[in-house]
Write a protein that binds this DNA or RNA. Structure first.
Length: 111
DNA sequence: GACATGACGGCAG
DNA sequence: CCTGCCGCCATGT
């Protein structure tokens, strides 16, 4: 996989868009895929820009714990849960159920 | 220009 | 097992 042909943000957008419906991934996974696993925070920041001006399924991206930490940044705190639920992902207490099963690793699946 | 914070993650205690 | 601290990059004050 070629890395760093475009901006870090652009790559985050693409990876996020490639997340299969009904699947979720983590900021760290995306960061690791992009080669900046140490800067998982940047991924979150990138997605922040994404939700504002791009149509990105950012609701499929959660933290390593499977927790919907960023739901508060969506149109509505419930939006993230609703979107995930609409895709068949069970969310309880801001946490993705069966996260380990639904987890989608870009560096593995997208390879 | 410097300090503090943030959609995170890993390691140490 | 749970809590706390550090690192990383960009943005806001």
């Amino acid at each position: 996989m070629l890395i760093n042909n475009e901006s870090f943000f652009e790559q985050v957008y693409e990876v996020t868009k490639l997340i299969p419906k009904g699947r979720v991934t983590s900021y760290g996974a995306i960061a690791a895929y992009l080669g900046t696993k140490q800067s998982a925070r940047m991924v979150g920041w990138a997605l922040h820009s994404t939700t504002a001006h791009h149509h990105i399924p950012a609701h499929r991206v959660v933290n390593r714990n499977g927790l919907l930490t960023g739901k508060h940044h969506f149109s509505s705190p419930e939006a993230m849960e609703q979107l995930l639920a609409a895709e068949g992902i069970e969310v309880q207490n801001n946490q993705v159920q069966d996260f380990d099963k639904l987890f989608w690793d870009p560096s593995k699946e997208l390879l």
